[in-house]
């Protein structure tokens, strides 16, 4: 039972931080299907910096966990500039821009990974080996029944994510910047009339989504896959988008959606294992989160409403 909570949380929290990035972008009025590409590229930059630094200074990759987290955020943010420029400056169709960025991220990182492996390390490999990040347990709290599992075998990145998520919540709902950001997605012309540059607000919102997605990608690389390769593009970015739409573009309901995904995923694996079914049955249980989402959406999406100006190019002259 504990493993369901432990594994569920370690999957749900990176998903959650990525979904928060999506909320920032979409609340400001920029549709963001590019989360998948951002997280992959962020993880690529993070993994690359870790591997290169480890190579240059002779340290172990394991020790560079925090360094790579930092670089993954920078990487995700720099890559998101493409989406921001395309959508805001070049007035491209935002959905198409997102899809194109996903394709480009996969192509670029696959190419660069093999190329750099060949050039720097002289190895014909399509992945950067990272290993799994260390975990810690908070002794006193871990002994509490049921809830104790939350404090057992925690990845350090889970704490970081929670801190960032609280800050992101505060920024979006309690500050002037957050209010302007949310207004840019509902009624950009009123924001403009108040003397605020809508395009700047939207630009920063997309950059924030890139930053947070990059972090999420690195967390997946350090926990689920233990390396960086093209397998990082598992569609978690799209899952995050589903979570935020499910959460009606609000942070707390989105957290609930992410937890649902996480627990349904780990729960499915747990049931399959505890019933000692053949491994192919795991596939059947893997469907759980997605079926559950579809069913819940049927009941809850009547009241779902996207930000009013979502996906629209901001045209100052238009009334």
């Amino acid at each position: 039972m504990d493993t369901v909570i432990i594994d569920g949380l370690s999957f749900a929290l990176p998903l959650f931080i990525m979904a928060i990035g999506g909320i920032y972008s979409e609340k400001s009025g920029i549709t963001n299907l590019a989360l998948e590409g951002f997280q992959g590229f962020g993880a690529f930059v993070g993994a690359l910096s870790a591997v290169l630094i480890a190579n240059a200074f002779g340290t172990d990759v394991q020790n560079l966990f925090y360094v790579s987290l930092l670089f993954s955020m920078i990487g995700g943010m720099s890559f998101s500039i493409i989406h921001a420029v395309l959508c805001i400056k070049f007035k491209a169709n935002q959905v198409i821009s997102g899809v194109v960025i996903n394709i480009l991220a996969l192509a670029l990182t696959a190419f660069l990974t093999t190329q750099i492996n060949a050039l720097v390390f002289g190895a014909a490999s399509d992945k950067f080996q990272l290993g799994v990040s260390e975990r810690f347990t908070i002794e006193g709290l871990a002994n509490i029944p049921v809830i104790g599992a939350v404090f057992t075998n925690v990845y350090p990145f889970q704490v970081i994510i929670i801190v960032i998520a609280i800050f992101a919540w505060y920024l979006l709902y309690k500050t002037k910047f957050g209010m302007r950001l949310r207004a840019s997605g509902e009624n950009p012309h009123s924001v403009d009339a108040a003397g605020v540059n809508v395009l700047k607000v939207r630009f920063s919102a997309v950059l924030i989504s890139g930053l947070l997605s990059g972090l999420a990608g690195m967390c997946f690389a350090y926990s689920i896959s233990a390396n960086f390769s093209s397998n990082i593009y598992m569609g978690y970015g799209f899952l995050a988008i589903a979570a935020l739409i499910f959460g009606n573009w609000r942070i707390l309901p989105t957290l609930a959606a992410c937890l649902l995904f996480g627990f349904a995923k780990s729960g499915g694996t747990f049931i399959a294992q505890s019933m000692a079914l053949p491994s192919s049955f795991t596939d059947l249980f893997m469907v759980l989160p997605y079926v559950l989402t579809l069913l819940l959406l049927i009941f809850f999406s009547k009241s779902n409403r996207a930000p009013r100006a979502l996906g629209e190019v901001y045209d100052k002259g238009k009334r």
């Binding site: 569609g235 469907v287 079926v291 579809l294 779902n304």
Partner: peptide, 23 residues
């Protein structure tokens, strides 16, 4: 009928198809 965004429902159906057929 249910106002479910097509992006979300198609993504969910993609996963469901992938896993069920794999099974």
């Amino acid at each position: 009928r249910f106002n479910i965004h097509e992006v979300v429902s198609t993504i969910m159906l993609n996963y469901i198809a992938q896993y069920v057929i794999s099974f």
